[in-house]
Design a protein around this nucleic acid. Structure first.
Lengths: 236, 236
DNA sequence: CTTCCTGATAGTGCATGCATAAGTGAAGGA
DNA sequence: TCCTTCACTTATGCATGCACTATCAGGAAG
Protein backbone atom coordinates (compact mmCIF):
# COMPACT_ATOMS: atom_id res chain seq x y z
CA UNK A 1 0.00 0.00 0.00
CA UNK A 2 2.87 2.35 0.53
CA UNK A 3 3.14 4.17 -2.71
CA UNK A 4 6.51 5.79 -2.93
CA UNK A 5 6.78 8.73 -5.28
CA UNK A 6 8.51 7.52 -8.39
CA UNK A 7 10.36 10.57 -9.53
CA UNK A 8 9.93 13.95 -7.89
CA UNK A 9 9.03 16.87 -10.11
CA UNK A 10 8.76 14.90 -13.27
CA UNK A 11 5.58 16.81 -14.00
CA UNK A 12 5.28 19.69 -16.38
CA UNK A 13 6.35 17.96 -19.52
CA UNK A 14 4.74 15.86 -22.14
CA UNK A 15 1.39 17.40 -22.92
CA UNK A 16 0.64 19.47 -25.96
CA UNK A 17 -0.63 22.31 -23.80
CA UNK A 18 2.69 22.80 -22.06
CA UNK A 19 4.63 23.08 -25.28
CA UNK A 20 2.17 25.62 -26.66
CA UNK A 21 2.40 27.61 -23.44
CA UNK A 22 6.17 27.72 -23.87
CA UNK A 23 5.91 28.83 -27.46
CA UNK A 24 3.37 31.57 -26.88
CA UNK A 25 5.09 32.81 -23.74
CA UNK A 26 8.28 33.10 -25.73
CA UNK A 27 6.47 34.95 -28.49
CA UNK A 28 5.29 37.51 -25.97
CA UNK A 29 8.55 37.79 -24.07
CA UNK A 30 10.58 38.14 -27.24
CA UNK A 31 8.27 40.77 -28.64
CA UNK A 32 6.88 38.86 -31.60
CA UNK A 33 3.49 39.41 -30.01
CA UNK A 34 3.17 42.97 -28.78
CA UNK A 35 0.99 44.16 -25.87
CA UNK A 36 -2.60 44.68 -26.86
CA UNK A 37 -2.55 42.07 -29.61
CA UNK A 38 -5.64 39.93 -29.55
CA UNK A 39 -5.05 36.18 -29.44
CA UNK A 40 -7.65 34.44 -31.58
CA UNK A 41 -8.39 30.99 -30.25
CA UNK A 42 -9.23 29.37 -33.54
CA UNK A 43 -6.36 31.00 -35.40
CA UNK A 44 -4.03 29.57 -32.75
CA UNK A 45 -5.75 26.22 -33.08
CA UNK A 46 -4.92 26.20 -36.78
CA UNK A 47 -1.37 27.42 -36.23
CA UNK A 48 -0.58 24.59 -33.83
CA UNK A 49 -2.73 22.00 -35.54
CA UNK A 50 -4.90 21.29 -32.51
CA UNK A 51 -8.44 22.09 -31.50
CA UNK A 52 -9.57 25.09 -29.50
CA UNK A 53 -9.80 23.18 -26.24
CA UNK A 54 -6.06 22.92 -25.50
CA UNK A 55 -5.67 26.48 -26.76
CA UNK A 56 -8.13 27.72 -24.20
CA UNK A 57 -6.26 25.82 -21.52
CA UNK A 58 -3.07 27.46 -22.73
CA UNK A 59 -4.68 30.87 -22.36
CA UNK A 60 -5.50 30.00 -18.77
CA UNK A 61 -1.84 29.32 -18.04
CA UNK A 62 -0.67 32.50 -19.72
CA UNK A 63 -3.25 34.53 -17.84
CA UNK A 64 -2.08 33.08 -14.54
CA UNK A 65 1.46 34.13 -15.48
CA UNK A 66 0.23 37.65 -16.13
CA UNK A 67 1.39 37.58 -19.74
CA UNK A 68 -2.12 37.88 -21.15
CA UNK A 69 -5.37 39.40 -19.92
CA UNK A 70 -8.55 37.43 -20.09
CA UNK A 71 -11.76 39.38 -20.60
CA UNK A 72 -14.88 37.24 -20.15
CA UNK A 73 -16.67 36.68 -23.44
CA UNK A 74 -14.30 39.07 -25.14
CA UNK A 75 -11.24 36.99 -25.69
CA UNK A 76 -7.63 37.25 -24.64
CA UNK A 77 -5.09 39.96 -25.36
CA UNK A 78 -1.38 40.24 -24.67
CA UNK A 79 -1.14 42.03 -21.34
CA UNK A 80 -0.92 45.80 -21.43
CA UNK A 81 0.32 47.85 -18.50
CA UNK A 82 -0.66 51.33 -17.44
CA UNK A 83 2.30 53.56 -16.53
CA UNK A 84 1.43 53.08 -12.89
CA UNK A 85 1.27 49.31 -13.20
CA UNK A 86 4.57 49.34 -15.08
CA UNK A 87 6.41 51.24 -12.37
CA UNK A 88 4.74 49.07 -9.78
CA UNK A 89 6.00 45.96 -11.50
CA UNK A 90 9.46 47.46 -11.75
CA UNK A 91 9.42 48.16 -8.07
CA UNK A 92 8.63 44.51 -7.40
CA UNK A 93 11.46 43.59 -9.77
CA UNK A 94 13.82 45.90 -7.91
CA UNK A 95 13.01 44.38 -4.55
CA UNK A 96 13.27 40.82 -5.85
CA UNK A 97 16.59 41.43 -7.53
CA UNK A 98 17.87 43.26 -4.49
CA UNK A 99 16.95 40.32 -2.29
CA UNK A 100 18.62 37.88 -4.68
CA UNK A 101 21.75 40.00 -4.92
CA UNK A 102 21.91 40.20 -1.15
CA UNK A 103 21.70 36.43 -0.86
CA UNK A 104 24.23 36.02 -3.66
CA UNK A 105 26.70 38.19 -1.78
CA UNK A 106 26.29 35.89 1.20
CA UNK A 107 26.22 32.55 -0.59
CA UNK A 108 28.18 32.53 -3.82
CA UNK A 109 31.15 30.20 -3.77
CA UNK A 110 34.50 31.23 -5.14
CA UNK A 111 33.84 29.66 -8.54
CA UNK A 112 30.64 31.57 -8.92
CA UNK A 113 32.27 34.82 -7.86
CA UNK A 114 35.04 34.20 -10.34
CA UNK A 115 32.57 33.50 -13.13
CA UNK A 116 30.68 36.68 -12.39
CA UNK A 117 33.84 38.73 -12.35
CA UNK A 118 35.05 37.25 -15.63
CA UNK A 119 31.75 37.76 -17.39
CA UNK A 120 31.66 41.33 -16.25
CA UNK A 121 35.26 42.12 -17.17
CA UNK A 122 34.95 40.56 -20.58
CA UNK A 123 31.95 42.78 -21.26
CA UNK A 124 33.93 46.03 -21.05
CA UNK A 125 34.41 46.20 -24.78
CA UNK A 126 30.67 45.90 -25.39
CA UNK A 127 30.20 49.36 -23.91
CA UNK A 128 31.94 50.94 -26.87
CA UNK A 129 31.96 48.27 -29.54
CA UNK A 130 28.87 46.16 -28.95
CA UNK A 131 25.38 46.51 -30.30
CA UNK A 132 22.37 47.05 -28.08
CA UNK A 133 21.46 43.40 -28.54
CA UNK A 134 24.95 42.28 -27.55
CA UNK A 135 24.73 44.24 -24.36
CA UNK A 136 21.23 42.96 -23.67
CA UNK A 137 22.51 39.40 -23.90
CA UNK A 138 25.39 40.13 -21.52
CA UNK A 139 22.94 41.87 -19.19
CA UNK A 140 20.72 38.80 -19.20
CA UNK A 141 23.62 36.54 -18.28
CA UNK A 142 24.84 38.93 -15.62
CA UNK A 143 21.54 38.87 -13.78
CA UNK A 144 21.19 35.12 -14.34
CA UNK A 145 24.51 34.48 -12.62
CA UNK A 146 23.41 36.50 -9.62
CA UNK A 147 20.09 34.64 -9.53
CA UNK A 148 21.88 31.33 -9.46
CA UNK A 149 24.34 32.51 -6.88
CA UNK A 150 21.51 33.33 -4.50
CA UNK A 151 20.56 29.64 -4.36
CA UNK A 152 16.96 30.43 -3.67
CA UNK A 153 14.96 28.82 -6.41
CA UNK A 154 11.53 30.08 -5.46
CA UNK A 155 12.71 33.67 -5.22
CA UNK A 156 14.51 33.16 -8.50
CA UNK A 157 11.35 31.90 -10.13
CA UNK A 158 9.40 34.91 -8.92
CA UNK A 159 12.09 37.22 -10.25
CA UNK A 160 12.18 35.49 -13.62
CA UNK A 161 8.41 35.54 -13.92
CA UNK A 162 8.41 39.25 -13.17
CA UNK A 163 11.22 39.78 -15.65
CA UNK A 164 9.17 38.01 -18.31
CA UNK A 165 6.18 40.22 -17.67
CA UNK A 166 8.35 43.28 -18.06
CA UNK A 167 10.20 42.03 -21.12
CA UNK A 168 7.87 43.55 -23.73
CA UNK A 169 8.40 47.00 -22.18
CA UNK A 170 12.07 46.68 -21.36
CA UNK A 171 13.52 45.44 -24.59
CA UNK A 172 14.74 48.54 -26.28
CA UNK A 173 16.06 50.57 -23.38
CA UNK A 174 19.70 49.95 -24.26
CA UNK A 175 19.20 51.95 -27.40
CA UNK A 176 18.84 55.08 -25.31
CA UNK A 177 21.84 57.35 -25.29
CA UNK A 178 24.40 56.62 -22.60
CA UNK A 179 22.30 53.90 -21.07
CA UNK A 180 24.83 51.19 -21.78
CA UNK A 181 27.79 52.88 -20.14
CA UNK A 182 25.72 53.89 -17.13
CA UNK A 183 24.43 50.36 -16.80
CA UNK A 184 27.93 48.93 -16.96
CA UNK A 185 29.11 51.25 -14.21
CA UNK A 186 26.21 50.19 -12.03
CA UNK A 187 27.07 46.56 -12.68
CA UNK A 188 30.64 47.31 -11.77
CA UNK A 189 29.65 48.60 -8.36
CA UNK A 190 27.41 45.57 -7.86
CA UNK A 191 30.17 43.13 -8.72
CA UNK A 192 32.57 44.81 -6.32
CA UNK A 193 29.99 44.71 -3.53
CA UNK A 194 29.29 41.02 -4.13
CA UNK A 195 32.98 40.14 -4.16
CA UNK A 196 33.38 42.08 -0.95
CA UNK A 197 30.46 40.21 0.60
CA UNK A 198 28.68 43.49 1.27
CA UNK A 199 25.14 42.11 1.44
CA UNK A 200 23.26 45.24 2.45
CA UNK A 201 25.31 47.38 0.12
CA UNK A 202 24.65 45.23 -2.93
CA UNK A 203 20.94 45.18 -2.15
CA UNK A 204 20.89 48.96 -2.17
CA UNK A 205 22.91 49.15 -5.37
CA UNK A 206 20.74 46.62 -7.15
CA UNK A 207 17.58 48.43 -6.12
CA UNK A 208 18.95 51.66 -7.56
CA UNK A 209 20.08 49.87 -10.71
CA UNK A 210 16.63 48.48 -11.43
CA UNK A 211 15.01 51.78 -10.56
CA UNK A 212 17.18 53.44 -13.16
CA UNK A 213 16.14 50.84 -15.70
CA UNK A 214 12.56 51.54 -14.71
CA UNK A 215 12.95 55.24 -15.42
CA UNK A 216 14.61 54.52 -18.74
CA UNK A 217 11.90 52.11 -19.71
CA UNK A 218 9.14 54.56 -18.84
CA UNK A 219 10.91 57.19 -20.88
CA UNK A 220 11.25 54.89 -23.84
CA UNK A 221 7.63 53.80 -23.63
CA UNK A 222 6.48 57.40 -23.47
CA UNK A 223 8.59 58.43 -26.43
CA UNK A 224 7.56 55.55 -28.61
CA UNK A 225 3.90 55.32 -27.64
CA UNK A 226 3.88 51.65 -26.93
CA UNK A 227 0.41 50.26 -26.35
CA UNK A 228 -0.23 50.59 -22.67
CA UNK A 229 -3.97 50.44 -22.06
CA UNK A 230 -3.78 53.56 -19.94
CA UNK A 231 -7.46 54.19 -19.72
CA UNK A 232 -8.75 50.80 -18.84
CA UNK A 233 -10.10 48.74 -21.70
CA UNK A 234 -12.45 50.95 -23.68
CA UNK A 235 -10.39 52.60 -26.33
CA UNK A 236 -12.24 54.64 -28.94
CA UNK B 1 -28.61 16.37 -25.33
CA UNK B 2 -30.35 17.43 -22.18
CA UNK B 3 -29.06 20.91 -21.98
CA UNK B 4 -30.45 23.12 -19.30
CA UNK B 5 -30.73 26.61 -20.70
CA UNK B 6 -30.87 28.23 -17.30
CA UNK B 7 -28.12 27.84 -14.77
CA UNK B 8 -29.79 27.92 -11.39
CA UNK B 9 -26.88 29.50 -9.62
CA UNK B 10 -24.61 31.47 -11.87
CA UNK B 11 -23.28 33.51 -9.01
CA UNK B 12 -21.53 36.67 -9.98
CA UNK B 13 -20.90 37.87 -13.46
CA UNK B 14 -17.53 36.26 -14.02
CA UNK B 15 -17.17 32.97 -15.77
CA UNK B 16 -17.90 29.66 -14.14
CA UNK B 17 -14.23 28.78 -14.24
CA UNK B 18 -13.23 31.78 -12.16
CA UNK B 19 -15.71 31.03 -9.42
CA UNK B 20 -14.60 27.40 -9.26
CA UNK B 21 -10.97 28.48 -9.11
CA UNK B 22 -11.84 30.68 -6.15
CA UNK B 23 -13.70 27.90 -4.39
CA UNK B 24 -11.04 25.25 -4.88
CA UNK B 25 -8.20 27.61 -4.05
CA UNK B 26 -9.98 28.44 -0.83
CA UNK B 27 -10.49 24.77 -0.09
CA UNK B 28 -6.77 24.20 -0.39
CA UNK B 29 -5.70 27.32 1.48
CA UNK B 30 -8.13 26.67 4.29
CA UNK B 31 -7.05 23.07 4.62
CA UNK B 32 -10.28 21.37 3.57
CA UNK B 33 -8.21 19.77 0.84
CA UNK B 34 -4.90 18.55 2.22
CA UNK B 35 -1.65 18.20 0.27
CA UNK B 36 -1.49 14.98 -1.70
CA UNK B 37 -5.23 14.70 -2.18
CA UNK B 38 -6.13 13.73 -5.69
CA UNK B 39 -8.59 16.00 -7.44
CA UNK B 40 -10.90 13.90 -9.55
CA UNK B 41 -12.08 15.82 -12.57
CA UNK B 42 -15.46 14.18 -12.97
CA UNK B 43 -16.19 14.21 -9.26
CA UNK B 44 -15.53 17.97 -9.34
CA UNK B 45 -17.71 18.26 -12.42
CA UNK B 46 -20.57 16.68 -10.51
CA UNK B 47 -19.94 18.74 -7.41
CA UNK B 48 -20.17 22.02 -9.32
CA UNK B 49 -22.76 20.85 -11.81
CA UNK B 50 -20.63 21.49 -14.88
CA UNK B 51 -18.81 19.35 -17.39
CA UNK B 52 -15.18 18.31 -17.18
CA UNK B 53 -14.00 20.97 -19.61
CA UNK B 54 -14.21 23.98 -17.27
CA UNK B 55 -12.87 21.79 -14.48
CA UNK B 56 -9.77 21.03 -16.49
CA UNK B 57 -9.35 24.73 -17.18
CA UNK B 58 -9.66 25.35 -13.45
CA UNK B 59 -6.90 22.84 -12.80
CA UNK B 60 -4.68 24.77 -15.17
CA UNK B 61 -5.20 27.95 -13.17
CA UNK B 62 -4.51 26.23 -9.88
CA UNK B 63 -1.38 24.61 -11.27
CA UNK B 64 -0.07 27.97 -12.44
CA UNK B 65 -0.66 29.30 -8.91
CA UNK B 66 1.37 26.41 -7.54
CA UNK B 67 -1.51 25.13 -5.44
CA UNK B 68 -1.80 21.84 -7.32
CA UNK B 69 0.62 19.67 -9.24
CA UNK B 70 -0.31 18.37 -12.64
CA UNK B 71 1.08 14.98 -13.65
CA UNK B 72 0.51 14.22 -17.33
CA UNK B 73 -2.02 11.45 -17.82
CA UNK B 74 -2.12 10.86 -14.09
CA UNK B 75 -4.36 13.63 -12.85
CA UNK B 76 -3.95 16.49 -10.46
CA UNK B 77 -3.09 16.46 -6.76
CA UNK B 78 -2.98 19.19 -4.15
CA UNK B 79 0.62 20.37 -4.14
CA UNK B 80 3.00 18.67 -1.78
CA UNK B 81 6.31 20.19 -0.79
CA UNK B 82 9.54 18.48 0.08
CA UNK B 83 11.21 19.87 3.21
CA UNK B 84 13.71 21.64 0.99
CA UNK B 85 11.04 23.18 -1.18
CA UNK B 86 9.16 24.26 1.92
CA UNK B 87 12.09 26.11 3.42
CA UNK B 88 12.83 27.57 0.01
CA UNK B 89 9.32 28.96 -0.21
CA UNK B 90 9.61 30.33 3.30
CA UNK B 91 12.79 32.07 2.33
CA UNK B 92 11.00 33.73 -0.57
CA UNK B 93 8.22 34.67 1.82
CA UNK B 94 10.74 36.16 4.24
CA UNK B 95 12.34 38.31 1.58
CA UNK B 96 9.01 39.47 0.19
CA UNK B 97 7.66 40.39 3.59
CA UNK B 98 10.91 42.08 4.51
CA UNK B 99 10.74 44.18 1.35
CA UNK B 100 7.13 45.09 2.03
CA UNK B 101 7.85 45.98 5.64
CA UNK B 102 10.74 48.15 4.54
CA UNK B 103 8.53 50.03 2.12
CA UNK B 104 5.81 50.30 4.75
CA UNK B 105 8.24 51.92 7.16
CA UNK B 106 9.00 54.51 4.49
CA UNK B 107 5.50 55.09 3.14
CA UNK B 108 2.78 54.53 5.71
CA UNK B 109 0.89 57.67 6.56
CA UNK B 110 0.00 58.59 10.12
CA UNK B 111 -3.45 57.02 9.90
CA UNK B 112 -1.99 53.73 8.78
CA UNK B 113 0.67 53.79 11.46
CA UNK B 114 -2.00 54.53 14.03
CA UNK B 115 -4.17 51.66 12.78
CA UNK B 116 -1.25 49.25 12.94
CA UNK B 117 -0.37 50.34 16.47
CA UNK B 118 -3.95 50.00 17.65
CA UNK B 119 -4.42 46.57 16.13
CA UNK B 120 -1.23 45.40 17.71
CA UNK B 121 -1.95 46.86 21.14
CA UNK B 122 -5.47 45.48 21.20
CA UNK B 123 -4.06 42.03 20.52
CA UNK B 124 -2.10 41.84 23.77
CA UNK B 125 -4.85 39.96 25.53
CA UNK B 126 -4.92 37.29 22.82
CA UNK B 127 -1.52 36.10 23.93
CA UNK B 128 -2.98 34.81 27.18
CA UNK B 129 -6.71 34.61 26.60
CA UNK B 130 -7.16 33.94 22.90
CA UNK B 131 -7.38 30.70 20.98
CA UNK B 132 -4.89 29.75 18.30
CA UNK B 133 -7.48 30.70 15.69
CA UNK B 134 -7.99 34.10 17.28
CA UNK B 135 -4.31 34.80 17.11
CA UNK B 136 -4.08 33.52 13.55
CA UNK B 137 -6.77 36.00 12.53
CA UNK B 138 -4.96 38.87 14.24
CA UNK B 139 -1.72 37.74 12.62
CA UNK B 140 -3.39 37.78 9.23
CA UNK B 141 -4.62 41.34 9.73
CA UNK B 142 -1.28 42.47 11.07
CA UNK B 143 0.55 41.38 7.95
CA UNK B 144 -2.24 42.68 5.74
CA UNK B 145 -1.90 46.17 7.22
CA UNK B 146 1.81 46.15 6.51
CA UNK B 147 1.19 44.93 2.97
CA UNK B 148 -1.21 47.79 2.36
CA UNK B 149 1.10 50.28 3.94
CA UNK B 150 3.83 49.38 1.50
CA UNK B 151 1.68 50.62 -1.39
CA UNK B 152 3.27 48.25 -3.83
CA UNK B 153 0.48 46.16 -5.24
CA UNK B 154 2.56 43.82 -7.40
CA UNK B 155 4.89 42.98 -4.54
CA UNK B 156 1.85 42.53 -2.36
CA UNK B 157 0.31 40.12 -4.83
CA UNK B 158 3.48 38.07 -4.96
CA UNK B 159 3.59 37.93 -1.19
CA UNK B 160 -0.05 36.91 -0.95
CA UNK B 161 0.34 34.23 -3.59
CA UNK B 162 3.33 32.84 -1.73
CA UNK B 163 1.40 33.01 1.53
CA UNK B 164 -1.40 30.98 -0.06
CA UNK B 165 0.99 28.30 -1.21
CA UNK B 166 2.36 28.02 2.29
CA UNK B 167 -1.00 28.10 4.00
CA UNK B 168 -1.54 24.32 4.11
CA UNK B 169 1.76 23.91 5.93
CA UNK B 170 1.57 26.96 8.15
CA UNK B 171 -1.87 26.66 9.62
CA UNK B 172 -1.38 25.00 12.93
CA UNK B 173 1.90 26.50 14.07
CA UNK B 174 0.25 28.73 16.66
CA UNK B 175 -0.72 25.63 18.57
CA UNK B 176 2.91 25.03 19.38
CA UNK B 177 3.95 25.90 22.88
CA UNK B 178 5.08 29.45 23.40
CA UNK B 179 4.80 30.28 19.73
CA UNK B 180 2.11 32.90 20.30
CA UNK B 181 3.97 34.95 22.88
CA UNK B 182 7.19 34.80 20.87
CA UNK B 183 5.33 35.88 17.76
CA UNK B 184 3.75 38.80 19.59
CA UNK B 185 7.12 39.99 20.81
CA UNK B 186 8.51 39.86 17.29
CA UNK B 187 5.52 41.84 16.07
CA UNK B 188 6.14 44.34 18.82
CA UNK B 189 9.66 44.99 17.63
CA UNK B 190 8.41 45.29 14.05
CA UNK B 191 5.76 47.83 14.99
CA UNK B 192 8.26 49.94 16.87
CA UNK B 193 10.66 49.90 13.93
CA UNK B 194 7.93 50.92 11.52
CA UNK B 195 6.75 53.75 13.74
CA UNK B 196 10.35 54.89 14.02
CA UNK B 197 10.72 54.77 10.25
CA UNK B 198 13.64 52.37 10.57
CA UNK B 199 13.40 50.82 7.10
CA UNK B 200 16.48 48.61 7.17
CA UNK B 201 15.82 47.58 10.74
CA UNK B 202 12.28 46.45 10.09
CA UNK B 203 13.40 44.49 7.04
CA UNK B 204 15.86 42.59 9.18
CA UNK B 205 13.29 42.00 11.92
CA UNK B 206 10.67 40.79 9.48
CA UNK B 207 13.10 38.44 7.84
CA UNK B 208 13.93 36.91 11.21
CA UNK B 209 10.25 36.73 12.12
CA UNK B 210 9.35 34.73 9.04
CA UNK B 211 12.41 32.54 9.46
CA UNK B 212 11.20 31.68 12.92
CA UNK B 213 7.79 30.81 11.55
CA UNK B 214 9.55 28.66 8.96
CA UNK B 215 11.35 26.69 11.64
CA UNK B 216 8.15 26.26 13.62
CA UNK B 217 6.29 25.11 10.55
CA UNK B 218 8.95 22.57 9.64
CA UNK B 219 8.86 21.29 13.20
CA UNK B 220 5.10 20.98 13.13
CA UNK B 221 5.12 19.23 9.78
CA UNK B 222 7.74 16.77 11.00
CA UNK B 223 5.85 16.03 14.20
CA UNK B 224 2.52 15.52 12.55
CA UNK B 225 3.65 13.69 9.44
CA UNK B 226 1.89 15.94 6.99
CA UNK B 227 2.04 14.60 3.47
CA UNK B 228 5.12 15.97 1.83
CA UNK B 229 6.70 15.31 -1.51
CA UNK B 230 9.83 13.35 -0.76
CA UNK B 231 10.39 11.64 2.51
CA UNK B 232 13.72 10.59 3.81
CA UNK B 233 15.34 14.00 4.06
CA UNK B 234 16.50 14.21 7.61
CA UNK B 235 17.24 17.56 9.11
CA UNK B 236 20.88 18.21 9.98
C1' DC C 1 -25.37 65.51 -37.77
C1' DT C 2 -25.58 62.94 -33.64
C1' DT C 3 -27.67 59.47 -30.72
C1' DC C 4 -30.17 55.44 -29.92
C1' DC C 5 -32.20 51.27 -31.21
C1' DT C 6 -32.07 46.75 -33.74
C1' DG C 7 -30.74 42.87 -36.29
C1' DA C 8 -26.86 40.22 -38.26
C1' DT C 9 -22.37 38.02 -37.39
C1' DA C 10 -18.65 36.25 -35.34
C1' DG C 11 -16.41 34.28 -31.47
C1' DT C 12 -16.41 32.73 -26.71
C1' DG C 13 -17.89 29.25 -23.13
C1' DC C 14 -19.41 24.91 -22.08
C1' DA C 15 -21.17 19.98 -23.08
C1' DT C 16 -20.39 15.69 -24.96
C1' DG C 17 -17.89 11.88 -27.30
C1' DC C 18 -13.95 9.11 -28.37
C1' DA C 19 -9.02 7.35 -28.52
C1' DT C 20 -5.32 6.33 -25.55
C1' DA C 21 -2.45 5.89 -21.56
C1' DA C 22 -2.27 4.74 -16.66
C1' DG C 23 -3.96 1.90 -13.01
C1' DT C 24 -5.88 -2.80 -11.34
C1' DG C 25 -6.39 -7.44 -10.52
C1' DA C 26 -6.24 -12.20 -11.78
C1' DA C 27 -3.78 -16.05 -13.76
C1' DG C 28 0.35 -18.49 -14.67
C1' DG C 29 5.23 -19.63 -13.99
C1' DA C 30 9.58 -19.75 -11.15
C1' DT D 1 5.06 -17.77 -1.73
C1' DC D 2 6.43 -14.23 -4.79
C1' DC D 3 7.12 -12.20 -9.17
C1' DT D 4 5.71 -11.47 -13.97
C1' DT D 5 2.30 -11.04 -17.61
C1' DC D 6 -1.78 -9.62 -19.73
C1' DA D 7 -6.50 -8.41 -20.26
C1' DC D 8 -9.77 -5.21 -18.18
C1' DT D 9 -11.22 -0.94 -16.13
C1' DT D 10 -10.93 3.81 -15.39
C1' DA D 11 -9.93 8.46 -16.31
C1' DT D 12 -7.27 11.70 -18.94
C1' DG D 13 -6.49 14.55 -23.19
C1' DC D 14 -8.28 16.28 -27.14
C1' DA D 15 -11.98 17.04 -30.93
C1' DT D 16 -16.27 18.68 -32.17
C1' DG D 17 -20.86 20.83 -31.76
C1' DC D 18 -24.16 24.07 -29.96
C1' DA D 19 -26.03 28.06 -27.18
C1' DC D 20 -25.12 32.61 -25.65
C1' DT D 21 -22.93 37.07 -25.53
C1' DA D 22 -20.35 41.00 -27.46
C1' DT D 23 -19.54 43.71 -31.43
C1' DC D 24 -20.77 46.29 -35.39
C1' DA D 25 -23.43 47.95 -39.37
C1' DG D 26 -27.42 50.17 -40.75
C1' DG D 27 -31.35 52.88 -40.14
C1' DA D 28 -34.84 55.56 -37.43
C1' DA D 29 -35.61 59.18 -34.14
C1' DG D 30 -34.16 63.49 -32.01
Amino acid sequence: MTRLPLQPERAGKGTVVDSIVQTLADDIISGRLTPGTKLDAQAMAQRFGVSRTPIRETFGHLAAMGLVTHRPNRGVIVATLSPDALSDLYEAMAELEAALARLAALRMNSDQRQALLELHQESVHLVRDGTADDYARYNQRFHALIFEGAQSSQLQQLAEATRHRLAPFRRAQFRLTNRVSKSWEEHDAIVRAILAGDADGVARLMRLHVQTVSAMSAEFVAEHQLPMGTRGETSP
